[in-house]
Amino acid sequence: MRHLLASRDFREGFVEMLPACVGLVPFGLVCGVGAAAAGADWFAALGMALIIFSGAAQVLAVQLYAANAPVAIIVLTCFVLGLRFLMYSAAMAPYLKPLPRSWQRGLAFLLTDQAFAAAIRRFNAKDDPRGGGLHFLGCGVALWGMWIVTNMAGFFAGSSIPASWSLDFAVPLCFIALVAPLFRTTPSIAAAVVAGVAVVALEALPMKLALVAAGLIGIVAGTLVDMMGERWKAR
């Protein structure tokens, strides 16, 4: 542990995630409030934050649980929502390849939307797998710790926050902070625009399939534009 705290990369990752943690507060509160409203006890609310560690899946799970949906439906819907993790995992794979297996297994647990975006940025900026891994670990630990604290705060005290503050809007704002700086190349803009349009157009798909389908369509669009641009340059 002391060895970890002594690592500059670990501390950099941890500190880099602190602003994102501020944005995580409302998300965690929303999850805690949802768990309380669905009739979960504090231990189950804690278990959800500790084990599932995915805001979108937790919100969805407690909503379906409160609506008395069967276990199979809840699990399947959350699994579809979590299919984006397959893409994160694939995108992260080349960077984690040089690291030991135990590191890969540990870091996989911390692969959330936020940690993914921050870690990828760092791996791209510096060609240093070990430092990048430590940085990723720092990001993940900060997010996980904050996640547990805010979930419990939401469970016990969240219902006293006035709805008119619209604090839940901080959740999309955090993702905007991660994605907007990527809009610097034509293929990335194409990937984002197509994915954004597709997710609205596919809204009617069941079980949150729209999210992962739109993501895939956006990735294909970005790749095609990238290849076209290359051919254009080669002429």
């Binding site: 995108a91 990527l182 990335s188 803009i189 984002a192 997710v199 956006g218 990238d226």
Partner: peptide, 8 residues
């Protein structure tokens, strides 16, 4: 293009 597409 995973980050740009999925996060959007």
């Amino acid at each position: 293009f995973v980050p740009a597409a999925m996060l959007t």
